[in-house]
Design a protein around this nucleic acid. Structure first.
Length: 270
DNA sequence: ACCACAACCTGGCCGC
DNA sequence: TGCGGCCAGGTTGTGG
């Protein structure tokens, strides 16, 4: 479900509730969530730990702990984290419960069971393959150009590759390509210099605006505190098949690309 | 290096 | 109502 803006919203909203809290107890209701470690070892290592920060890298949430280890969470398609009051019971799809020392709990909820938890001394073993953070000052148009130049695949597929740039998913890849006015089917290495500059600017502006709107709420995503993300109200192409392009009026088209639904304006995006 | 496809899972929606 | 088919914001692995 969540892409960079949604995960960033989670980090910002969870941070004030979790930093400084100690994990009093760990309940694993569906062990498939836990990667790398045996679930029992995971629970034991987590218990009693104080959370010292809530951070984000790409679409991953990172919770550095006092022990020096880091709890890492990926929500995948339908994963969800909620700070609940003590009386809130786990429901059918609550797979992990972390009881906190203030009487509340952090619930991980995921109907599709795709989301994953890691507990590791070295976060690089989990997030080490990610490409640059698109909103970091170090992510320049030159760096994007160097990465895009090496790939012959359609630019949409390349934007979805987390080792190229971290954090774009199906929504924001489509929205970014519309903003840059680039046809999603274009071979990445065919982009001209000016187009790469537009793409770089579009990645940063679309993601920044989406974070400002607390992300996009379609079906499942719901920020922990904010009622809903609002960026879906600003979609230019995503799930607007057949509706008029807001720029030129032509009907938005939908195709299948890289096994994903892809939405674009056939007139504005060349 | 790239692509197609399957797998991981469940639920919502649509048409019949 | 019920059922089959299709779709879904992600990632990983296999095989060609």
């Amino acid at each position: 479900m969540p892409e960079l803006p949604e995960v960033e919203t989670y980090a910002r909203e969870l941070r004030p509730h979790l930093v400084g809290r100690r994990i009093r107890a760990v309940t694993i209701r569906w062990p498939g969530v836990v990667e790398q470690a045996a679930p029992a070892d995971f629970a034991v290592a987590l218990q009693g730990q104080q959370i010292i920060n809530v951070a984000r890298r790409g679409k991953y949430l990172l919770f550095p702990l006092q022990s020096g280890a880091t709890l890492i969470v990926h929500l995948r398609m339908t994963g969800n984290l909620t700070v609940t009051s003590a009386t809130d019971a786990a429901d059918l799809h609550t797979h992990i419960v972390l009881e906190l020392d203030d009487g509340r709990a952090l619930h991980f909820n995921d109907p599709r069971k795709f989301g994953r938890f890691w507990l590791t001394a070295d976060p690089q073993t989990v997030v080490g393959n990610l490409g640059p953070e698109p909103l970091d000052g170090a992510f320049t148009a030159q760096e994007l150009a160097a990465r895009v130049r090496k790939r012959a695949a359609p630019i949409k597929a390349v934007l979805l590759d987390q080792t190229v740039v971290a954090g774009l998913g199906n929504i924001y890849a489509d929205e970014v390509l519309f903003a840059a006015r680039i046809d999603p089917r274009r071979p990445a290495n065919s982009l001209e210099h000016g187009e790469v500059l537009r793409l770089h600017a579009a990645i940063r502006s679309v993601l920044t605006e989406a974070i400002r709107a607390s992300g996009s709420s379609l079906r499942d995503y719901r920020p922990p505190l904010t009622a809903r993300g609002r960026f879906q109200e600003q979609f230019q192409v995503f799930r607007r098949t057949g509706e008029p392009c807001r720029r030129c009026g032509a009907p938005i088209e939908r195709i299948r690309l890289a096994q994903r639904s892809t939405h674009f304006c056939p007139v504005c995006q060349r």
